[in-house]
């Protein structure tokens, strides 16, 4: 038979697959360990009087939620968006503008955040997902720039200077902005996003996205319309990122057009890549590394961006699977 392979060769061929499977398992275990460590972090840090670092970790977790949503697009769908930060801004501004009109009801704010981001993702996704490769990169960038310049132009919401948010979100009697609880709310959201991603990756939907990334023609040939599933993914990712913007608005009480600039979008890509594309832990690892470099290096030298840039080039050149890939031995 032409289709049988020598028995001796088979185990070797199976190992690449098995190595991958083990790497995925380690990734999942690492996710639980990381989440547990994050849960203990505020207690440990406050015991040492290091509340400042709790805030850094909190910021990292918010960024990680945004990065995880981008990782979903890049890692599963192969959709490299250079405009993902627009959703951070949409989340922040939807919250801030409502607060500006004295609406601090968290349920209304959250509905507005999710509704606005879903609508924006749907409309822009319908156009952007018709394009491929670098055109997709540029068109997502273009849409983000449109929102960016819109917010700069709207002086009544702060324009260039950004919008200060005077009221944090109230869910009934619960104030989302309270520092002691916000950390755990964000951690809970992050946990749901990370584990949700782990599950999606193994679902029908994940398989379809991966297949469409690998060979679009094959996916259509068996009878799926890749466009519809990508659009669904794009909307889910946009809403998730807007949720991070909502949390960030409650954390910093401030939102600026800068949060939507292409530089922020590039930073999100950086976090995804440094952490490890298509891994569960990648976004939080990448976000922690990103902020720790900023805080630690920023304390040492005002020129830390230089070393940061070099680090970035080195990562892309040498560690193509990101830090999580280095640790778990998986391949992209």
């Amino acid at each position: 038979m032409p289709n049988t392979i020598p028995a001796r060769a088979r185990p070797a061929m199976l190992t690449s697959r098995a190595v991958q499977a083990r790497a995925a398992d380690r990734d999942l275990v690492a996710a639980f360990v990381l989440l547990a460590l994050l849960a203990a972090t505020p207690l440990v840090l406050s015991a040492f009087g290091q509340e400042f670092w709790t805030d850094v970790v909190l910021r990292a977790m918010i960024l990680a939620i945004a990065a995880a949503s981008l990782n979903f697009l890049i890692g599963l769908g192969g959709l490299v968006s250079l405009g993902h930060a627009a959703f951070l801004g949409i989340g922040g501004y939807a919250t801030g503008i409502l607060a500006d009109f004295d609406i601090d009801n968290g349920f209304i704010q959250l509905a507005a955040v999710l509704g606005a981001s879903a609508l924006f993702a749907l409309v822009t996704g319908m156009v952007a997902l018709r394009t491929k490769g670098v055109h997709f990169i540029m068109i997502t960038l273009a849409f983000a720039q449109m929102v960016y310049f819109t917010m700069i132009g709207l002086r009544q919401f702060g324009g260039d200077d950004g919008l200060t948010i005077n009221y944090t979100s109230m869910f009934g009697g619960f104030d989302l902005g309270r520092k002691d609880t916000l950390y755990y709310v964000v951690l809970a959201v992050l946990a749901v996003v990370m584990l949700g991603y782990a599950r999606l990756r193994k679902s029908d939907f994940g398989l379809l996205l991966k297949a469409a990334k690998g060979n679009e023609r094959r996916v259509s040939a068996v009878g799926f319309d890749p466009y519809r599933y990508r659009l669904a993914a794009y909307v889910v990712a946009g809403m998730t990122c807007a949720l991070a913007g909502f949390l960030d608005a409650n954390f910093t009480s401030f939102v600026t057009p800068g949060s939507m600039s292409w530089i922020t979008s590039a930073e999100l890509i950086f976090i995804v890549i440094v952490g490890g594309v298509a891994t569960i832990c990648g976004p939080i690892v990448g976000a922690l590394v990103f902020l720790l470099i900023e805080e630690i290096m920023g304390g040492v030298t005002v020129y830390w961006h230089f070393w940061f840039g070099l680090f970035l080039i080195a990562i892309v050149l040498f560690a193509r699977n990101g830090l999580v890939g280095l640790l778990t031995g998986g391949r992209r």
Binding site: L207, A211, V219, G223
Partner: peptide, 25 residues
């Protein structure tokens, strides 16, 4: 789809033929 397993390639077609996809979970 070269990056996927044999099984995943076949299952993709199975899902399409059964009209099942999009059960996200």
């Amino acid at each position: 789809v070269r990056d996927l397993s044999v099984g995943e390639n076949v299952i993709l077609a199975l899902l399409a033929r059964r009209g099942h996809a999009g059960r996200f979970w």
